[in-house]
Each structure stands twice: as structure tokens, then as C-alpha cells.
């Protein structure tokens, strides 16, 4: 059985690949053994950030290679590594106040709100909008709006004023999670009970049962609706 193929260009080289493949699989089909620009292969790790053009079309397109199907006359380039700055900090030394973001990432205030970052985001996150929230110091809004970020770095690669948006967002989320989200009282209470040994006896009782005894306890357990 012959496989129908379409032409794509990998870093300038023309190769024929089946039209049903993702960009990642097409690169492998073309003979590349990947170590850079590949990771989870399921859209969660951000390793396979890809830039492409289509023939006759002036636009640059951005995608995750593992989640995007090839198209005829696609000109492909992966971004294997993009240098970016992560500020030095220890989360326990910080305060959840607007100044924390500006102090650690002073370039934040240079943002032009041009929106190039949002156009580049393969997750469809409105990066410009969360950067505006970051400039207002609204940590909760940054945390919420940036949550689906996979840190592929395309926003930063495209930014004309050299922001590292995804690191700003990561810091905002950690500040929110540690300092602003309300603490779980039942969790703290349970940790105290465990430290006081409240469950030693219950566990010892189960551990003393033989398999038949444990099986019957398991089959008879009540299940929360």
C-alpha cells in the first residue's frame, strides 16, 4: 500500500511526509532523531515550540509540534532553546505585594502592550492581558489568566522589549498559591491529628488482618455519594 504524501520544508530542506502526521511525527518520518524540541508529546511540557510559514503567506504561525498536523508547503523551524532570565528569589522571603513583581522583573514596566506575545501563544492565552494585570500588581488575575501556561517560551522569543512573561506569571502564581489563596483549615487540622498519632490504632488494626479479613473489610466499605 502506497502512502500519499505532501511536501513540507524542514529548516529549508524539502521532504515528503504523510498528510495525517503531526509536525513532530513528520520530523521523525523525515529521519530526524529528536533530543531537542521534543518532550511529553502530549501538549503539556512546552518543549516542542515551533514556528512556521505557509507558502505565499507572509504570516508567521506558532504551534506545538506534537499537537499540530502538517499542511502542504509548510516551512518549519523548531526553537530548541531560548535563553531567558529567571530572577533569583526564595519564595519564603517574598511578600505578595505588587512591588515584588516590579522589583524582581523591572523590565515588566517596559511592556508596550503590543500583543505580539498573545499572538505567539500556542495555548491561546491572552498574555498581553495578564501582563497588564501584572503591571497593575493584580497577582490573582495574573495567576488565574496564566494558569494554562506551559512555559514554551514563544512569548518571550517574540517580545520586542525582552520580557520573560512566563517567569513573571510563574512567580505570580506561586505568590498567589502561597500567600493569597485561603489556607485549608481541614488540611491543617488533619496534619495535626496525624502528628498526634490519631490514626496509629486504626492502621494497626487493618495491618493485623489477614488477606481474607482485609478483603471483607474492603468489600463492605461505605462509599461517599
Amino acid at each position: 500500500m502506497d502512502v500519499d504524501t505532501i511536501p513540507v520544508f524542514v529548516m529549508g530542506q524539502r521532504v515528503e511526509v504523510p498528510p495525517t502526521l503531526t509536525i513532530l511525527r513528520a520530523l521523525e518520518y523525515a529521519g530526524y532523531t529528536l533530543t531537542r524540541g521534543v518532550g511529553c508529546r502530549a501538549g503539556f511540557c512546552g518543549a516542542c515550540a515551533t514556528v512556521y510559514r505557509l507558502k505565499g503567506d507572509p504570516h508567521l504561525y506558532f504551534a506545538l509540534a506534537c499537537q499540530t498536523v502538517v499542511r502542504p508547503e509548510m516551512y518549519l523551524a523548531q526553537i530548541p532553546f531560548f535563553p531567558s532570565r529567571r530572577a533569583d528569589y526564595r519564595i519564603e522571603d517574598l511578600a505578595a505585594v505588587p512591588a515584588t513583581l516590579f522589583t524582581l522583573y523591572p523590565e515588566l514596566l517596559r511592556c508596550l502592550a503590543c500583543g505580539t506575545c498573545s499572538k505567539a501563544c500556542p495555548q491561546g492565552i491572552d498574555v498581553r492581558s495578564y501582563m497588564a494585570a501584572a503591571m497593575r500588581g493584580d497577582l490573582a488575575a495574573v495567576a488565574d489568566a496564566s494558569f494554562d501556561c506551559i512555559a514554551c517560551g514563544l512569548c518571550s522569543a517574540r517580545c520586542p522589549v525582552e520580557e520573560t512573561q512566563y517567569n513573571v506569571a510563574l512567580l505570580a502564581r506561586r505568590l498567589y498559591g502561597r500567600y493569597l489563596a485561603r489556607r485549608s483549615e481541614h488540611l491543617a487540622e488533619r496534619v495535626r491529628e496525624i502528628e498526634a498519632g490519631a490514626f496509629h490504632q486504626g492502621l494497626a488494626e487493618l495491618r493485623a488482618l489477614d488477606e481474607a479479613g482485609l478483603t471483607s473489610r474492603y468489600n463492605a466499605r461505605d462509599i461517599e455519594a
Partner: peptide, 27 residues
């Protein structure tokens, strides 16, 4: 595994992991 579990969640919460919570902070 089961005895360490709540303290591990608390450790992650303190490192800044954003667990899904109700408005009163309960999980």
C-alpha cells in the same frame, strides 16, 4: 504513603501550588 499524604499537600500549598479550592479555602 497515606500517613504522609496530608503533610505533602500542605508542603506543596506552602511552596505555592494552586490547588482547586472552595472560596473558604477548603479543598
Amino acid at each position: 504513603l497515606v500517613t504522609d499524604a496530608p503533610s505533602v499537600i500542605q508542603w506543596l500549598e506552602q511552596l505555592g501550588v494552586m490547588f482547586d479550592k472552595h472560596p473558604d479555602g477548603s479543598m
